[in-house]
Amino acid sequence: MDTELRELYQQVILDHNKSPRNFRVIEHPSHSSEGYNPLCGDTIHLYLTIEDGIVKDISFQGSGCAISKASASLMSSMIKGKTIEEAKKIFEKFQEMITGKLDENSDIESLGKLAVLSGVKEFPARVKCASLAWHTLINAINEKKEAVTTE
């Protein structure tokens, strides 16, 4: 496989695509939101239980490409237990990483496993796939009613 392609589809991504974490419905979420990527028809429904500013539980449902599904799965693992403020900070850094704006000295380590998605920066058409779950998360946190679209 081509190295650039392997960078994009790392084993961790293929694994999360095949067996996504937190892929379920939360019956009575405190927050939820829908995201939609009209370009590829990706949809995500995100459920959150937020108590005292902390994400106690998070789950998602939907359909999408390997990148968007793995991104949602990784996000859910990463965010659980974090405060809203922390989640927003991680999102900002993640966004910088996938759009190639992260400066070299910046510690990519703080993004943990999310770093496997850094290959996306070489594929501008796929940035939306990787960021859909995150935009949906921010919408859910901000309690925006309308669905996110990445267009």
Binding site: D2, C40, I67
Partner: peptide
């Protein structure tokens, strides 16, 4: 179980 977008990217390579 494979999304068309992933297929499109793989085929491009």
């Amino acid at each position: 179980n494979i999304h068309p977008h992933d297929i499109g990217t793989f085929l491009d390579f």
